[in-house]
Computed example of a mutant assay.
Amino acid sequence: MRYSLGVVMDPIAHINFHKDTSLALLQAAQNSGFELFYFEPSDLYLDGGCAMGSGRSLKVFDDPARWFELGNPSECQLGRLDAMLMRVDPPFDNEYLYATYILESAEREGALVVNRPQSLRDCNEKIFATAFPQCCPPLIVSRDMARLRAFHAKHRDVIFKPLDGMGGSGVFHCKPDGANLGAILELLTDRGARQIMGQRYIPEIKDGDKRILVVDGEVVPYCLARIPEAGETRGNLAAGGRGEARPLSDRDRWIVQQVAPTLKERGLLFVGLDVIGDYLTEINVTSPTCVREIDAAYGTDIGALLMSAITDRLAQKG
């Protein structure tokens, strides 16, 4: 049986062919026999209570000079698609939120949405990790500057970051001397108007911020360690980090065991865990990346694993 798959993503013409995970997933879907349809967030709408989209048929190619071909736009009832991938990058702003409501309508009307729209809303990528305190470093979420200062005074070496950033944006390392602590907290909290996170600094960041991918509760046995460039504390590739693929450690696998059952329960089929040293720091549910780098290093086909999980779910629906 041939299934249909819609993807909601940022403009496909502007992606990085060599690194983009969404493209890798779409190539795997096409290879698995899915008929592809392309939507940008602005293409989604509700007609009464019906989830709709102005979609275009999509073909993808393993060619850096020409990696996609789009058909003409046509109106599509989203619930009639077998599955949909939500692959829009953060920030998780109101427009992202509204898209999840439309996709939730599509889900009610019959489409399998990956990841589940309600869980995209419920599982803030910073705060969701705190549901597994046995895996996390000492941390605080607050907008109270006195409380945040006290956390720094206790742990002395602290990372402060916004709750809605990506790619290392807005991440500050506040060292034991407390230099610029007041300015950092004023900026991140907007003088006490916004909640932020503080985490005890993990010195193992020098060995890399590991991205571990979990597909339908099963872990990919390799990760991508994103190693900061000299003078940086952020390993994110978008912040200049260097990627190095590695096998998982025993501790990495233990962390996944703690988290994976909850991911399955919440309909989170494709998730990226961020682990520094022995600690879980974030759970990425919106648009996890690093597939291409791991596939290239170890010959895996992570996209095919996800498509197999989606196909299995669709077959169970009958």
Rank of each mutant, 00 (worst) to 15 (best):
D312R: 15
D207I: 05
V220T: 05
F132P: 00
L305N: 10
L78T: 09
T289I: 09
D122H: 11
G231L: 10
L36I: 10
E40V: 06
Y222C: 07
L148Y: 01
V271L: 08
P91H: 07
A65D: 14
A153L: 14
P261H: 07
N284H: 11
A83N: 03
I159R: 01
G48L: 09
A29K: 08
C174E: 01
C174G: 03
T281M: 04
L269P: 02
M52K: 15
K317Q: 15
K317R: 15
R191P: 07
D190T: 06
S57N: 07
G48P: 06
D89H: 04
T21G: 05
L25H: 06
N124R: 06
R246P: 00
L263W: 00
A309Q: 06
A131S: 13
Q257G: 15
R200L: 11
L148P: 02
F172I: 11
L269I: 07
E107L: 09
N115D: 08
A297P: 04
E232Q: 15
I184E: 02
L78A: 08
S32G: 14
R66N: 15
E204H: 12
V141W: 00
G299N: 10
D20A: 05
L181G: 03
A183N: 14
R226W: 05
Y96T: 00
K154T: 14
A304S: 13
D216C: 11
A131M: 14
E125G: 03
D157A: 12
V7L: 07
G178K: 04
A179W: 11
G272E: 02
P176G: 11
L188G: 05
I310C: 04
N31R: 14
H173M: 08
S287Y: 01
A51S: 13
Y38D: 00
I127K: 08
F151C: 05
V215N: 09
N72S: 13
R121K: 13
I127F: 06
R149A: 15
